[in-house]
Amino acid sequence: MSAGLVRGVLALESSLIDRVASGRGLGKVLATATTVLALGCAAYGMAMGLWRSPLQSLSAGLKLPALFLATAALTAGLDVVLCGLLRARIRPAQALTASVLAMAILGSVLGSLAPVAAFVSTQASPPQGAASLPTSHWLLTAHVVVLGVAGIIAVSRLRGLLDALIPDTAIARRVLWAWMVTHGVVGAQMSWVLRPFVGNPTLPVRVLRSRPWEGSFFEAVFDMTVARMGPVGPLVIVMLLLGVVVVVASHLDPPIEAFEITPQHIALRRRGARAGFEVPLSSICDVSRESAGVRIHWIMPGRLERSTELLRLASQEEARAAFERIAWASGARRGYRAPS
């Protein structure tokens, strides 16, 4: 594990992205990322448990890296399958490396915050039975916020990495959201199984609860919302989640910002994308005009799925000109549909 590679992981340098994109030497990258993840999470875990007792600190220092490593291991197969289903066209090793690299960034952020977390843990009122429950809840909330911030940073870096690996930004975003959901669900349940991390001051210090597999994180959230907000609590949570899903869905497919017709392809680039992607003219099976836009449909050779994309233009005249150029270039005049 070289210092240069560690720095490359932290900064997600372009040389490292190129290495992942080319698929060369991924084993070394994976090993470095896993080490960074384990060390960073161990440091933060120790800081989390420091408030309760040295044993809790040691236990959380082992459990926090275990949580993330287990999440990575349990979701590895699903990550690869999702890439295939979403047509990401990246190799399993690349998908796994990208996923672990994002977690390594999360681990490095957590590790860097460990001294501050340890300082706060040693300065909070010491655990003294039930009287210290508010302090333990406060500390736990603060740690959850820190984990959330570290997760957001990691996801933003993963987004850049996926954009570099997957030419079509829309597919890259679908993969990103799919991974976030799977990692979030599995990670939340793993945190339930491996609890406690901060430690309950009314219970004796233990590495794991007496029945760690009993119940689930989501049942606990359900019970808590019912207890705090009454029977409408879960409904409120579901409505909030649905709102998030709607917002996410509306941002999954950024529109095509530019296109260029070459002798063999149409090069398309989405808004906000670092790079474009190409559609072979020979694979275009239908072209139609829609008001101030042109819709193209294509089927890649050897594939079953039909893809479609709407090119938005500034005016109907521009749309008519673009339609003529694409239809002529692709020979797909049979797909012509006059605008209503």
């Binding site: 997600l12 960034i105 490095s108 952020v109 590790g111 915050l113 001294p115 501050v116």
Partner: peptide, 9 residues
């Protein structure tokens, strides 16, 4: 440590 890692990230 956090300044270094945050800026590197």
């Amino acid at each position: 440590p956090s300044l270094y890692v945050f800026s590197s990230v």
